[in-house]
Design a protein around this nucleic acid. Structure first.
Lengths: 192, 192, 192, 192
DNA sequence: AATGAATGAGTTTTCATTCAT
DNA sequence: GATGAATGAAAACTCATTCAT
């Protein structure tokens, strides 16, 4: 299956940016990695920022679709959260490089403005799900907004560490155990 | 009390970097903010990176000293953690700009290498404290390493949001409530 | 015949450097002289030093080829030397600016290291030729190494003066007479 | 005997410049080497160029005085030249660092203008002495101007090599043998 | 679609020089 | 005489972006 040229470029950008960061990833390096000319990069993207935005968007979309399904379902609120994080972790496991970029570059001036940092609506989903869980009596009283941040933060930090390890080549999968540990914490910590 | 010139520069850098990020914070802007010439910046720091390192170090030292005291004390493990986070939040509350920089720039290539990202030994402290709590029977069985990441992640995300809000000017203090919420989560989630 | 852009830049550099010396020859001036932008200079050369190295190399190659022919020939040793110096002088006569640069900038820190200063193997050629001349009985006993230095030094100084004159515009050709004088000295001074 | 502060600075400059060249020898390095502050350098010299000029002048004076004596004497022209070169070599032998600087920096834009490069009138002395020798019938017919250049060039190149060797630490004294070789060349090459 | 030479504004950094103390 | 903090102009080099082909 031949990749659309836009994605060839995006993938090259992911490779370079995950290694050197957004600023050090020059368009020359990206074009080179993609095996094309600089000019062509600008045929498909109007500037360097847009490449990053494209990467973010593609990654977010994957979550959004999954989130819709889960939202519509009728599961226990904690299970919903577990399924989403599970899905999220699986994506990271498949492609840690994109994850690294998203985690590290999401505070870039032009990213913050666009609200990209919300990463596919995950935080909002978490907040809504917790709120709902409380209403349904599945979860104890709490501030859903703050708890959603907490969950989001836990996930990010774990991923961050995983990415650092993955770099070293040690590739052991802490993700799976982490998921268990997180859920034990949430289960005991949030159940009604 | 007159500030040492090195700190005048560091403060100017904090101002500029917190607003525009490390890369957009040019030495010109920093010098300008500090009310001095570019040359003088290089009289006190041998390059731009060193300014950031200096900011990191100063901030880390504050934590390190406090951590030592807490470590030596004989409190319940969760209380130890609470005190440390409390202290940490207080520092952020006092100077959100530095916090913003530390959270956002800590993954810069040259920061990652030096291990600056450990932010004053906090993660290690958390892990040790949890381990000890488990041994003493204060906390249930768990993977202290992962749980410490979790706590660290919660804190970072909360601070991140706080900083974003603080920027908007709506300085309501979520920090205090966040601390309570986090501790309810940890208390219920980790107690033996 | 259109010049390769790399040579356009090198020629501009020769113009500027011969007038102002390597250090005062800024990349801006060179680009300006070449009628291009600074950026393009760095597209063809990775730094300013490399421009000078390129100039040296091109000039050395011219000598090296000629030296090979002469070495292989079966002439009287003094005649070999005369032919080489003749050729060398002719090149200088054609392009005094490059000669000026080579003579004056060859002791720059980064030139000394690379051994560029040997100027196309001329000194070695001289030494070998004298050694051979002594063996063949064409020349009297002497220290070929020192004598080769002497010849090399004579040539350089004469060229140096010629270049200074040439600058003034008074392009009288001392080179030709100098060559005669030098050979009378060498002939009488070295013949067996 | 306490050195005048001006000479302390000049000596420090000689140390630094002989190692790194005029351009890389910053006033900071010089002041540091001299054990004083930058400001003081500017109390004794009005700019960096003047330091070099001072070094040149001091060195030239040494030759000038000796030249006067020799000029006044009634020796064979070749002997006069030999004595002067002997003296010159002795000075270089004593202080190769200054020699290195003079040889290498004498073509700096601001040096060329001032005519510093004549190095104490040596070239002129050589020319005059040769002219006189020819008149007196001690030397064969020749172009004294060119021959003086030749002698001067021989000397410079030999010194250059000596300095390069001296740097390596090999310190063998080629100077003495060189002098003999040069004089055999001149004696045979120039005698009437 | 595709190339890659060309641009030039912008950045970091250096360093001779000054001057208040 | 002596200091060294302070200046700022100037230099090397980078890189996103354009455009003729």
């Amino acid at each position: 299956m031949k990749l659309h040229k836009k994605d060839v470029i995006a993938n090259a950008a992911i490779e370079v940016m995950s290694q050197e960061g957004f600023y050090s990833a020059t368009t020359d390096k990206i074009a080179n990695e993609a095996g094309i000319s600089v000019g062509l990069v600008y045929y498909y993207f109007s500037n360097k920022e847009e490449i990053l935005e494209y990467i973010f968007e593609k990654e977010c979309e994957k979550r959004i679709n999954f989130l819709k399904q889960i939202k519509a379902s009728d599961l226990h609120s904690l299970l919903k959260i577990r399924k989403v994080l599970n899905f999220h972790f699986a994506l990271v496991w498949e492609d840690p490089k994109v994850a690294k970029i998203i985690i590290r570059e999401r505070y870039l001036p032009f990213c913050t403005e666009g609200g990209i940092q919300k990463i596919g609506g995950v935080p909002l989903f978490l907040k809504d799900t917790i709120e709902e869980g409380v209403k349904k009596g599945e979860l104890r009283e709490c501030n859903p907004w703050i708890i959603s941040m907490a969950i989001f933060g836990i996930v990010e930090e774990v991923l961050n560490r995983y990415i650092l390890e993955a770099e070293g080549g040690g590739g052991t999968n802490i993700l799976e155990e982490a998921l268990d540990q997180i859920f034990m914490l949430l289960d005991k910590g949030l159940s009604a």
